[in-house]
Design a protein around this nucleic acid. Structure first.
Lengths: 256, 256
DNA sequence: CTCCATTGTATCGAATATCGATACGATCAT
DNA sequence: ATGATCGTATCGATATTCGATACAATGGAG
């Protein structure tokens, strides 16, 4: 009974196989792939065979487990390569990293998460390793709250309320009322902040990048380790630079 | 006529659609997708519909053209997240960038290209924008030659000879004899170099990262703009730091 | 503003490629 | 050495994908 005659379930299964490598281990046996992708062993066999021929999967030498090849990055890279905002933002992000001497990131929204699309790492500290493409939840991140603060109130509220809100650390805010208060504060101040709500030892300040209608496209954030900054001090010293950076990116993108 | 009864052509078509966004424009109409993916309009319709439901494609607001969503980066990110070498390398790469005050990259081999998997951008200069996931050919890049120099001679020769070798600039070496000489030199010196063979104004020095059997896994390279360095000077000052970095990564990975 | 060419969307019957089950053989752990 | 688990190959049934085509929507030209 094909409910949607245009939907192709083979493609769904194939992508589920690629996504199966996201959870946990980096090499998987066929049985594990079938289990994680929630498909039958036969389907897994076909999909793995196809992906191997196409060069996206390879047998781990010496065993029969499969692993992703660097070729899968072509798929994600195409997004980055076509992202006009990223091109515009890069020099401003580099400058902010130079001025602040801290790690600076650009993230874009997807569902209820923010996705890292650019990252300039400060020299003096290697913080939590967050490669391009990784995700942080909107509700408890500075970047997410900055993004939400540039949406209209009802849209932001709806997003927060329907998002799962696990407690990552003892400091994570999980009550939607509290979170919405922080978003309201961010709206007034022009930037948002977050202290140790995702990782202990890590704070962040963030500001939204907006289009010509004021709608948010992305967020810039500075990662400030608690070992070097108190929150108040970071807000006083870094927030003006941050807001300036986000405003410059927004302005340049408009005139692109 | 299913020549290979295990091969799933729907999956191939779906991935071809995602890859179609790599060539040229960042938004495509259905007709353009069908053309670039080399599939019929009907197939394109089904694949696009499916990818849209799964969240990998979205309609560009205000038009009917499609664009990739950040969600596609999940696929590529899974590779990075599972890459043990990358974890080990990061601090050493950061240190090399700090010491050299230039941009440092880690690349891994795929086919006849090297793929960027990590990048530490120097503050004082924003060179050619090469995001994670982008590729450079082995035959004319420092990283590629460093990688090839750690393979046995015959394997390296075969790779170079069967690789297409377009001339990117007036300085690009395209004769396999010349290229193999450079690889031989790299083998003796422990690092390779390249000056303006891909982009004018850009040189690079590179060294291979090897496993416990001496087989290459990746390459570290420093991008040195011609505006700041003469080749001989760069080789004298930067190569020792570079070799040290690659050796440290190799050693740490062995003991992982 | 109208018309036309092009593009996106929906539908359909045919038949092929995909489906899941199963059987066999290889591999690993005990 | 033995058994259990896992990867590989094969099969018949049929659901699902196939390409064609018809229709509607769009956008540009005149």
């Amino acid at each position: 009974m094909p409910q949607d005659p245009l939907f192709n379930q083979s493609l769904e299964k194939g992508l589920a196989v690629l996504k199966a490598f996201g959870t946990g281990r980096s090499t998987l046996s066929l049985a594990e792939i079938a289990e994680r992708a929630e498909i039958t062993k036969s389907s897994a066999q076909r999909m793995v065979h196809t992906l191997e021929l196409l060069g996206y999967l390879a047998k781990e030498p010496g065993s029969r487990r499969m692993r992703l090849t660097p070729k899968v990055m072509e798929l994600g890279y195409n997004y980055l390569a076509g992202d006009a905002l990223l091109d515009v933002a890069n020099p401003y992000l580099a400058e902010l990293s130079r001025l602040s001497e801290e790690t600076v990131n650009l993230t874009e929204p997807d569902g209820d998460s923010m996705v890292y699309v650019a990252r300039f790492v400060a020299h003096r500290f290697i913080p939590i390793h967050m490669p391009i493409g990784s995700r942080i939840p909107m509700y408890c991140s500075g970047a997410g709250r900055a993004y939400l603060s540039a949406l209209d109130h009802d849209t932001a509220r709806a997003l927060v309320e329907r998002s799962p809100r696990p407690r990552h650390t003892e400091h994570t805010l999980v009550e939607s009322r509290e979170i919405l208060e922080r978003i309201e504060l961010a709206r007034r101040r022009g930037f948002s902040s977050q202290a140790e709500e995702i990782f202990l030892g890590d704070m962040s300040l963030a500001a939204a990048v907006v289009n010509s209608h004021g709608q948010p496209l992305a967020a810039v954030h500075i990662a400030a380790p608690t070992s070097r900054w108190r929150l108040e001090e970071a807000e006083a010293r870094l927030a003006p630079l941050l807001i300036d950076c986000a405003r410059n990116i927004s302005g340049s993108f408009r005139g692109r």
